[in-house]
């Protein structure tokens, strides 16, 4: 059964109408209670839990035929899972796709917020593995639900403070917890804390989908989002102390790429669209713009595949 013969068998954006209604109701309640995790009857998708089934269901419920969809994983449009999800929607919804952040109307992401500022009318859909920010402090859903109900977040502050006592700083570098509109503590998904400031006051609508854990939550545009911290240990972002070796950006989040077995490495923008855009504008980093692209690195494993299928 080829991939193409399957497409006609499914409705627009794969999910049946009743499932979409259920997800859409959850999304609207999520927008009405920012940061609160709305339970939803997540469906089994034709991709594994952990691959973005929550994000895919949210995207499927929001997509219209007029949308331009961008899918990124680790900030890059051409990581294999981003390619796979983009293909899924090309096939099941026939939507146009783009790599340009500014041209996209819906962006599904895993682990990053694009560097290019988002705009009104855009929707950013996050794939979320563990939506419960308190889960690693209290494994029981029955307990964490109570803690949210009572806004009893002392345990989280104790954990962060223990970090400070032990390490002199908060030792959480990604999935850094935030407080939404002074109420719910929320897991921003495993984005690096570098991205946390972009959560707050963002003109775009931010939707979070956790398929396996059956939760949807949301940040409406312009929502106030504060990364948890202490007066004497204020929240601070961090990134590798380098500039991008390709485009020279000083303020973008970087991937570290090992270039040889003698300790050689380079640092490149994790946001491939941002990096390519800067190089197109003539910006150049330490290693120049011509000989290597971050996309080449993202796909460097490709070389191990035979040139044509079955050529072994």
């Amino acid at each position: 059964m080829s991939d193409d013969t399957q497409s006609g068998a499914y409705t627009f954006a794969y999910l049946d109408e009743q499932t979409k209604r259920m997800i859409r109701r959850a999304i609207l309640k999520a927008l009405a209670i920012p940061g609160y995790q709305v339970p939803f009857a997540s469906r089994e998708m034709p991709m594994p839990y952990g691959w973005g089934t929550g994000g895919v269901q949210v995207t499927a419920a929001c997509l219209t035929p007029e949308d331009r969809l961008k899918v990124i994983d680790q900030g890059a449009d051409d990581t294999t899972n981003a390619v796979s999800i983009r293909r899924f929607f090309q096939r099941t919804a026939g939507v146009a796709t783009t790599e340009a952040t500014m041209d996209a109307t819906i962006i599904q992401t895993r682990h990053r917020i694009p560097e290019t500022p988002l705009t009104e009318g855009q929707i950013l859909v996050y794939q979320v593995p563990i939506p419960e920010p308190l889960r690693f402090l209290e494994p029981r859903e029955t307990e964490t639900r109570k803690m949210h109900e009572l806004e009893e977040y002392g345990l989280m502050h104790v954990k962060l403070y223990e970090d400070i006592a032990r390490h002199g700083q908060i030792a959480t570098s990604y999935a850094y917890p935030v407080k939404v509109e002074g109420h719910y503590v929320m897991d921003p998904s495993p984005i690096p804390k570098f991205d946390n400031p972009k959560l707050s006051g963002n003109p775009a609508t931010q939707l979070f989908g956790a398929g396996r854990e059956q939760r949807i939550y949301a940040l409406p545009p312009w929502t106030d989002v504060v990364s948890l911290d202490f007066d004497d240990h204020p929240f601070e972002t961090s990134k590798a102390p380098h500039d991008c070796d390709l485009c020279g950006a000083k303020d973008s989040y970087l991937d570290e790429v090992i270039t040889d077995d003698e300790g050689g490495r380079m640092f490149v923008c994790s946001d491939t669209d941002f990096c390519a855009g800067r190089r197109a504008e003539g910006h150049e980093g330490r290693l120049g713009g011509d000989q290597k692209s971050s996309k080449t690195f993202a796909n460097s494993f490709e070389g191990i595949w035979p040139a044509t299928a079955g050529a072994r």
Binding site: P48, Y49, G50, W51, T53, D73, Q74, G75, T79, N81, R110, H111, R112, P129, A171, S173, Y174, A175, P190, I191, P192, K193, F194, R212, S238, K239, A240, Y253, L254, D255, E256, S270
Partner: peptide, 22 residues
């Protein structure tokens, strides 16, 4: 279970980079 277990083989280099820096 298998989805969540196996998903750790997907790229995590953004998070790992954050941990490396830390």
């Amino acid at each position: 279970a298998t989805g969540f277990l196996e998903h750790i083989k997907l790229p995590h280099y953004v998070d790992f980079q954050a941990e490396l820096e830390l």
